[in-house]
Design a protein around this nucleic acid. Structure first.
Length: 275
DNA sequence: CGCTTTTGACCTGCGC
DNA sequence: GCGCAGGTCAAAAGCG
């Protein structure tokens, strides 16, 4: 413990040092007393931090345990649902077909919050997409757009983009298949937006259908134009930030991820008791 | 001119 | 077999 050593410096047992200290006289005594006070205050502070650290570790463990328990319950529920599905299908073949279509196609769905005024269905995800169809579906008044990955000629990946019925600012993006190539561009690099249009700021990350759905809201990311008009949207953005933070804290996935990051930072911290 | 989007027609699967 | 809904095709049009 470095602090213990720091406290010990003034009581040197070396005779020469003791002599010099005596010669310096009482003048230094007050100064030394002040230093000792400072050190003691710091030590007390550090002890308090250690204590808080321990409490946080304890809380993290509890959260982690709860998370594991919930995950187990979810997995069990999913398994039960699969069994129920099997019973409901008229034949094992049709069930297998459905499972194959649903899971083996590597489909995934992401929900992306965009600007409500933004009417196009462009989602930047770093790949290049070519639109090959659009359709109005029965259960949704908003058109569904069909895209094919055109990054490479033989890439089999398709995606469907449609606005959410309840909230038109949310885009539902369904990916099907797996890319046969690497991601060639960042979110700004996609060239799939129509000429002259104002592409959405949304940036999606595909998530496997078996995993919890992820919603990304990047409408708060400011474009260069927005940066150049500073105060205009400030209050509006503040409200959006509050909403954004509230939605994040309600999301259990976000909480779990945040807890993991905090845990990691504590473990790696130089003040960690484990070090 | 080449690439992309648009959009009506066509195809396919499913339920009745 | 028929009708419906979702998915795909391909010609036309738009844009740089």
């Amino acid at each position: 413990m470095p602090l213990t050593l720091a406290i010990g410096w003034s009581s040197s047992s070396h005779p020469e040092c003791n002599r010099r200290e005596t010669e310096k006289g009482i003048m230094c005594t007050e100064e030394n007393a002040l230093d000792v006070d400072k050190v003691q205050t710091l030590e007390a502070k550090l002890q308090r931090l250690y204590k808080e650290n321990e409490e946080l570790n304890h809380m993290l463990n509890l959260m982690s345990n709860n998370c594991n328990i919930l995950q187990d319950q979810l997995n069990k529920k999913k398994t039960n649902e699969m069994y129920t599905m099997t019973e409901n299908f008229s034949s094992q073949d049709s069930f297998n077909r459905r499972v194959t279509n649903t899971f083996k196609a590597k489909s995934s769905q992401v929900f992306i919050r965009t600007n409500e005024a933004d009417t196009n269905l462009i989602v930047k995800d770093g790949y290049q997409w070519r639109k090959y169809g659009q359709k109005i579906t029965k259960d949704n008044p908003w058109p569904r757009a069909y895209f094919r990955c055109s990054t490479t000629p033989n890439c089999p990946v398709k995606r469907k983009v449609q606005r959410c019925v309840d909230d038109k600012s949310i885009l539902m993006v369904t990916y099907e298949g797996e890319h046969t190539h690497a991601l060639i561009n960042g979110p700004e690099g996609s060239t799939s937006s129509p000429r002259g249009s104002n592409p959405s700021l949304a940036y999606s990350v595909p998530v496997n259908v078996l995993q919890p759905t992820v919603t990304l809201d990047l409408t708060l990311c400011r474009t260069n134009q927005e940066i150049n008009r500073p105060a205009q949207n400030f209050n509006n953005n503040n409200n959006n930030v509050a909403e954004y933070v509230a939605s994040l804290t309600r999301n259990p996935n976000f909480t779990a991820t945040l807890a993991a990051i905090i845990a990691q930072s504590i473990v790696n911290s130089p003040y960690s008791p484990q070090r």
